[in-house]
C-alpha cells in the first residue's frame, strides 16, 4: 500500500557550494544538518512546514528532494532521480556554519559622536524636593512673617543674591519652580533626563563625590550647589543673610 505523501517528513535541499552564505537565513532551524561534497551542499531534516516557509523558498538555485525507500525524489515528483551520495558527513547546521564577529573597523571615525544631554517631559508624579524662588519683596515678607513651624524643617541657600533655593517639604506658599531629587540631581518637576540610563555617567563626570546637588534647568544647563552650603531656615538666619550681603529686596 502506497504511503500517503503527508507521511513524508524529511526533505533535503541541495545548493551549490558557492552559495554557502545564503544558508544564513535558515541557520536558525536547529533541526537541520549540513553536509558537503565536491560541488554541492546538502541540507536535510526539513519539515513540511519549513520547506514551505519563506526562508527556504527564497534560497537561490536550490533543488528540493525527499527521500523515500532510500531513493531520492525531487519534490512533487513520483520518479526518483537516484540515491543520496553515501559519503556525506552530516553536521548540525549551527556547528557547520559558525558565527563570525565583525572585526574591529580601524577605519571607523564615528567615535567622536556625542549624545546631547537633554531633559524630556516625564509623566510620573514625583515628590517635590526643592523650590527655587525669586528673592523679592513678596517672598521676603512671606518668610519674615511665617511662624517657626513653617520654616524649621526647611533649608535654604541664596543663589546669585537674587534667588533662594529651598529644600524641604511642605515648602513655603511662594510661587516658584519646583524640583524633584534623583541621584543628587535636582530636576524640574515634570521632567526627567531624556536618557535616564545615562544619569550615573553624568553624575560620575560632574559630581562623582556626591557633595553637590546638581540643579538642572529646563534649558539643559546645570549648576552645582554644595550640600553643606544649605543652612537651616529661620527668620533670624534669613535676615542676617540679607543684612550680611547688604541685599534690600
Amino acid at each position: 500500500m502506497a504511503k500517503n505523501s503527508t507521511d513524508i517528513i524529511e526533505f533535503l535541499v541541495r545548493i551549490d557550494r558557492s552559495d554557502l552564505d545564503t544558508l544564513a537565513q535558515i541557520r536558525h532551524f536547529e533541526n537541520l544538518k549540513l553536509a558537503q561534497n565536491e560541488n554541492d551542499l546538502w541540507v536535510k531534516g526539513f519539515s513540511m512546514e519549513q520547506i514551505n516557509g519563506v526562508a527556504v523558498k527564497t534560497l537561490p538555485k536550490k533543488n528540493i528532494f525527499y527521500i523515500k525507500d532510500s531513493k531520492l525524489f525531487p519534490k512533487e515528483s513520483l520518479l526518483p532521480i537516484g540515491k543520496l551520495p553515501t559519503s556525506l558527513l552530516w553536521t548540525p547546521i549551527q556547528m557547520a556554519l559558525l558565527l563570525e564577529e565583525p572585526q574591529l573597523n580601524h577605519n571607523f571615525f564615528g567615535i567622536h559622536e556625542a549624545v546631547d544631554i537633554q531633559l524630556a517631559p516625564y509623566n510620573d508624579e514625583k515628590q517635590l524636593f526643592a523650590t527655587l524662588i525669586n528673592l523679592d519683596s513678596i517672598s521676603k515678607s512671606t518668610i519674615e512673617c511665617s511662624p517657626n513651624f513653617r520654616l524649621e524643617h526647611l533649608k535654604y541657600v541664596l543663589i546669585n543674591n537674587s534667588k533662594l533655593l529651598i529644600i524641604g517639604h511642605p515648602t513655603l506658599a511662594i510661587k516658584g519652580q519646583s524640583f524633584w531629587l534623583y541621584n543628587d540631581f535636582l530636576l524640574p518637576n515634570g521632567y526627567h533626563f531624556k536618557f535616564p540610563i545615562l544619569s550615573n555617567s553624568i553624575k560620575q563626570s560632574i559630581n562623582s563625590t556626591g557633595v553637590h546637588y546638581a540643579l538642572w534647568q529646563k534649558n539643559n544647563s546645570y549648576a552645582l550647589i554644595k550640600k553643606s552650603d544649605f543652612k537651616p531656615m529661620s527668620i533670624s538666619s534669613f535676615r542676617r543673610t540679607l543684612s550680611l550681603l547688604d541685599i534690600h529686596a
Binding site: 519674615e144 511665617s146 529661620s234 527668620i235
Partner: peptide, 11 residues
C-alpha cells in the same frame, strides 16, 4: 538681647 531676639521676630 532684645535686639538679638528681634531678629527672629515675625513682622
Amino acid at each position: 538681647d532684645f535686639e538679638k531676639e528681634c531678629l527672629s521676630f515675625p513682622f
